[in-house]
């Protein structure tokens, strides 16, 4: 207990856990989501404390920002559909049904066992495990970038990252498939102050997103954080109705969704040959290739996240045309 920062750590950790409990136990769903967003931001803060600024950025932008927006949008849609939009509280959206006692006991047993497993695994683990530090440090000069996290994401373990982009693609295809041009809750009217704010921040967000992307080669940041920040532009445009998705934009949107996956996989294939295997970038071109991939992936991520927020595929519907 010599370090006074430990007290800050204890308080922060306690706040994180308390917010987690609160966001699940509070009755009003809207409050639950707001508490969850606070929880996410504090988690990001504690990851900054643990020297993980990239992760904190990603969590704040994607895990909390985009997810929070998705949750709030869904809540609004549910309340609109079930006709409780005007009521003061939206306690829950699913009618509760009685749960049979054996199911409760089985669930409790399952939770208990898993938590026991977690505790055993954590307490038995070495405090600071062996890692890839040395290996990564050794390979860094050949990676083409100066920031280790970017090197891991886009060079050493690029295969994982490609598949992660594929997961995003699968998500947007699935979402378009699931929601079939259904009418949406009417967009909230936000007023002149909001519009001024949107006009002021839109260019700033574009700059910040691009900066994060560019900076990712040597400092915390990169395609995912930059993409999430740029996705915020899409969210703002959608929210303020400056952009309304049209059925005729579907083709472009499809190309934008697959751009990152296609470019990433294409580069991975094209560099193979001449004794090299897939994903093995020639060292002299590594930086260019990585930046190219990152740039295109960023566009895909931004468009995909915005599309995930918008949800349904824009198809021609009478309710679509009727809305101003």
């Amino acid at each position: 207990m010599t370090d006074p920062v430990i007290i800050f750590d204890l308080l922060l950790a306690a706040a994180v856990v308390a917010l987690a409990v609160a966001s699940l136990s509070v009755r009003d769903l809207f409050v639950a989501i707001v508490l969850f967003i606070t929880f996410g931001l504090l988690s990001a803060l504690s990851w900054v404390r643990l020297a993980a600024p990239d992760v904190a950025l990603a969590e704040a932008a994607i895990g909390t920002g985009v997810t929070g927006a998705l949750l709030l949008k869904t809540l609004r849609h549910l309340r609109y559909v079930s006709g409780t939009l005007d009521r003061a509280e939206a306690l829950s959206v699913t009618p509760a049904a009685p749960v049979p006692a054996p199911v409760i006991w089985a669930n409790a047993a399952f939770c208990g066992l898993v938590t026991l497993g977690l505790a055993v695994a954590f307490l038995g683990a070495p405090r600071s495990g062996p890692g890839f530090d040395a290996l990564v440090a050794e390979a860094m000069p050949a990676s083409g970038v100066d920031h280790p996290v970017t090197a891991v994401l886009l060079n050493f373990r690029a295969y994982d990252t490609l598949m992660e982009v594929v997961v995003l693609l699968a998500a947007v295809i699935a979402v378009w498939q699931i929601e079939r041009g259904l009418s949406d809750a009417p967009a909230p009217v936000l007023g002149a102050v909001w519009e001024g704010f949107a006009r002021l921040t839109l260019p700033a967000i574009v700059v910040v997103g691009t900066y994060l992307l560019w900076k990712g080669a040597e400092a915390p940041g990169g395609a995912f954080q930059g993409g999430a920040v740029l996705a915020a532009v899409g969210l703002l445009l959608l929210l303020s109705r400056l952009y309304v998705p049209q059925p005729s934009h579907r083709g472009v949107a499809r190309w934008a969704f697959v751009l990152g996956t296609g470019a990433f996989a294409g580069v991975a294939l094209l560099v193979a040959g001449g004794g090299r295997v897939a994903f093995e970038y020639p060292p002299e071109h590594a930086k260019t290739l990585i930046l190219l991939i990152e740039g295109l992936v960023t566009i895909s991520i931004a468009v995909t996240l915005a599309a995930l927020f918008h949800g349904r595929e824009p198809v021609a519907l009478r309710s679509d045309r009727g809305r101003a």
Binding site: L190, G191, W194, F197, T201, A204
Partner: peptide
Amino acid sequence: FVAVAGATCGHL
């Protein structure tokens, strides 16, 4: 930006 965002949020 934080100040502007805070003011806008308060207004909303």
